[in-house]
């Protein structure tokens, strides 16, 4: 099955670039991505720019309404994602728990819809 891992964290508690914590975080992500690749479980994955760059679009009465900001204003914001191939939820959760941000943020796991 395909699973999307959505990585959320409070930017205030995120390590800042240039600090030793940041270095450790990046190293953690590199190790994790390598493990996914080795297992053949990596389908896609990216980090996103900060939430201040988010723009939301809604089409109402045929008209696109564009607004600054994310879909929902929350303390923890979406910071990145992985698309993972895993045989079941337990394996997907095992991977999710290895995502470094899971140590201070939250990783949401969503199975990808299959149309059959």
């Amino acid at each position: 099955m395909k699973y999307l891992a959505l990585i959320y964290a409070d930017p205030k508690v995120e390590p800042q670039p240039g600090t030793p914590e940041w270095g450790a975080l990046m190293e953690g992500y590199q190790t994790f991505s390598e493990r996914l690749n080795k297992d053949g479980a990596f389908l896609a994955g990216e980090a996103l720019q900060e939430v201040e760059t988010a723009t939301s679009v809604r089409v109402r009465s045929g008209k696109a309404e564009i607004s600054d900001g994310p879909f929902a204003e929350t303390k923890e914001t979406l910071g990145g994602f992985y698309m993972i191939e895993a045989p079941d939820l337990d394996k997907a959760l095992e991977y999710a728990a290895q995502i470094p941000t899971a140590g201070y943020g939250t990783v949401e796991i969503r199975p990808v819809m299959t149309f059959d």
Binding site: M1, Y3, A86, P87, D88, L89, D90, A92, I109, P111
Partner: peptide, 11 residues
């Protein structure tokens, strides 16, 4: 069913 919660003994 949809989230793929497995049937079996955990590791």
């Amino acid at each position: 069913k949809n989230a793929g919660i497995p049937f079996g003994l955990p590791d």
